[in-house]
Each structure stands twice: as structure tokens, then as C-alpha cells.
Amino acid sequence: MRSSKRMIALVCAGAMSTWLSCTADKQQDEDTFNTQINGKEVNLYHLRNNHGMEMSVTNYGGRVVKLVVPNKDGQLEDVVLGFDSVQEYRESSEAYFGAAIGRYGNRIANGRFTLDGEEYELARNNGPNALHGGPGGFHNVVWEVVEFDDQRIVLQYISADWEEGYPGRLEVQMSYHLTDDNEFRIDYKANTDRKTVVNLTHHSFFNLNGAGKADVRDHVLQLNASAFTPVDSVLIPYGEIRAVAGTPFDFTKATAIGGRIDQDHEQLQFGGGYDHNFVLDKEEVGAMTLAATVFAPQTGIKMEVFTTEPGIQFYSGNFLDGSVSGKDGRTYGYRGAFCLETQHFPDSPNQPNFPSTELESGDTYTQTSIYKFSVQK
């Protein structure tokens, strides 16, 4: 593992006139992240590509703390919500800001599922349901850093048999790569010694106007999804795959996030806005395809999401309420961010007509998702 001073030098290298201020900023950041949790070392790691795009990652929860990209005027914007210290993440752990999610992203009904005739009971942390792997999920553990350089970090976590109620010892490796195409690329790999269910995802809260700057209702979203999975009042899918045509869920053409969000529609009422899984239009299972495009007119920042996964959860910041003070003391207000979580479908272990999330011993779980940034004037 590289020392903190070496990590600072990697991302601050450049013109000498900016090096000292960059070093001071990075050192201040690291002072609030260097700690130990349950006897494991936690640090902050800085990545930077050759075009000035930067990302900061903590191995506590595999969280993306900062993601800095240029806007249409050439100024840098931090486009993800987060906090200035590990302690704040621990105190607000259910916010999931920037976190790795597992073992099972999204909800499992009543915290139960059956696998090969045996019922498993999970920790319930979302009303009657299990959400995002439970309170001790991957967002709340310390990951081991197994590789690190100026553009890539590889994190590893071994989830014990029965952790949060899930069967099997699951070995997970996750790579974050900041490419020179201004992509934030995530590669996942997992193996188990016993049949289990796995659904990994990433949970950055994005605001392309800049974290804590205005809301995201002006962001223009397009989803390559002609169907979604409607839910009940506790956001568990019925098992139906419903066409989006003629509904406020039709983002097959670019539409402002806030354009129809307040319509009188049962599904919007259940979610308090958008908090739904969209079924991606794919000709080949597991193929890397464009899932979503988001554009912020204020900054000109465009984000494209590519994934090998069959679904994507679009969440419109419905539960942000201004009570959370984040980085630099900025308040995260109502609809102050959106999430696009690439995934298999919610509650798949209980829905036989959904794509399977079962992983057999001896098989390898893999998936790749990419968040690519550019400027559109």
C-alpha cells in the first residue's frame, strides 16, 4: 500500500504553482479519513487521469468521496454527494453515499428467500424488507486495498458464511478505474464456496450541477428501457414487467427529471417520485450497452452509463430533505441528487420470472459498469 504522502504526490503532480495548494487540500482530506475501524486501517486514496479528472475513494465501504469533472466553462465540479470525514459516513451510514453495495443491491421482500428448498432470513433494515445487504452490508465494512496506482484501485472483501443471513463465504474483488476517456469504470468479480445470491452495485448520488448546488429536476435523462418493474407500497416488485409507454416512466426520449415527477400516478406516489428498476433493452444477455444518458444544462456536463447488467434503478433523491450537511458544509436538499444503480432486479430471489441472481460454487460472478463524462455546449 502506498503511503499518504506518495498518494498526495500522485494526484498533485503538475504545475509547481498549484502543487502546494493541492497538497494542502489532499492532506486535510486525509487527516479526516486516516483511522482504524475494527482493527482495520482506513485511508483516502486519490486517482487522477491525464485530462484532470479526479476521484477520491475511501476503503471504508468502497465509497467514492469525490468525483471531479470539468464543466462547459472548463471549471471543475465535484458531482457526487458525500462527507468530509469517515465519522460522518459512519453516523449517516444509511445514506449509502458513494458506496459499494452488496451482497444484494436493492430490496428483498420480508427479508426472506428460498434457495434449493431452504429458507434464509436476512437482516431487515427497510420496513419489512432487507435493503442493500442489510445494516452490515458492503457499504459499512472496511475493504482491503490489493492494488493501487494513480488511475486505478482494486478493493477486496471476504464476506463470511451467514454474514447478514446470506449463505456461503463470498470473496469479492472490485476495481475502480479512472480512464483517459473520462470514464469511471467499475469491474466486479465474486466467488462463493456455497450456492448463494449476489447482486452488486454502486450507489453514488450524482448532481451534475455540482454537489449541493440546486436540485436535479432540470437534468435531462434518457433511459434505454422500454419497460420497468412496478412496485407495491413498500417498493417490492409485483413480478410484472410493464411497458413505460404512455406513463411518466417513459424516458426513452430525453426528458427532464422533474418534467412529470409530480403527476398523479400510483407508482410515483409509492416511491415519492422515481425509485424504480428499469428493464434495459438488450439484444444479448450480459452485453455491454448504453443504459442511460444524463445532461445538466446549467453546467453542460453529460454522463453516460454503460453496463453489462439487465437493469438500472433510477432514484430521484426523494428522501433528501435538507437535514444532511455534506462536503464543505453544503446542505443536500430535496431532489438534490439522482442515482443510477446498475443491477439485477429487486427481489429476484423471490421472483422466478426475473433474471436469476444465484451463484453456484465454482462459478464466477462478473459485471462491469461505466460512468462516462463529457461536455455538451
Results as ranks from 00 to 15, higher is better:
residue 120 Y to T: 01
residue 97 F to T: 00
residue 128 P to C: 07
residue 97 F to E: 01
residue 85 S to P: 05
residue 114 T to S: 14
residue 126 N to C: 09
residue 110 N to T: 10
residue 68 V to T: 14
residue 131 L to S: 03
residue 87 Q to I: 11
residue 131 L to Y: 02
residue 116 D to F: 01
residue 45 Y to T: 00
residue 86 V to H: 08
residue 140 N to Y: 02
residue 28 Q to R: 15
residue 26 K to N: 10
residue 66 K to F: 14
residue 73 D to M: 08
residue 110 N to P: 08
residue 30 E to N: 12
residue 126 N to R: 02
residue 134 G to F: 05
residue 130 A to Y: 04
residue 122 L to E: 01
residue 96 Y to C: 03
residue 105 G to L: 09
residue 33 F to M: 02
residue 54 E to C: 12
residue 54 E to T: 13
residue 70 P to Q: 14
residue 40 K to V: 03
residue 48 R to L: 07
residue 138 F to K: 04
residue 125 N to W: 06
residue 23 T to H: 09
residue 89 Y to C: 06
residue 101 I to H: 06
residue 69 V to L: 08
residue 68 V to L: 13
residue 71 N to C: 10
residue 136 G to P: 06
residue 126 N to A: 14
residue 135 P to G: 10
residue 60 Y to F: 15
residue 123 A to S: 14
residue 124 R to P: 04
residue 49 N to K: 06
residue 97 F to P: 02
residue 57 V to S: 00
residue 95 A to N: 12
residue 31 D to W: 01
residue 97 F to N: 01
residue 119 E to V: 03
residue 52 G to F: 14
residue 70 P to D: 13
residue 24 A to N: 12
residue 90 R to N: 07
residue 39 G to K: 07
residue 54 E to D: 08
residue 117 G to N: 14
residue 27 Q to C: 04
residue 77 E to V: 11
residue 55 M to G: 02
residue 104 Y to P: 02
residue 66 K to L: 11
residue 125 N to R: 07
residue 135 P to S: 15
residue 29 D to Y: 09
residue 135 P to L: 12
residue 110 N to R: 14
residue 116 D to K: 04
residue 115 L to S: 03
residue 134 G to H: 04
residue 110 N to Q: 11
residue 33 F to Y: 13
residue 84 D to Y: 08
residue 142 V to F: 07
residue 109 A to R: 15
residue 44 L to M: 08
residue 128 P to Q: 09
residue 137 G to C: 01
residue 32 T to M: 13
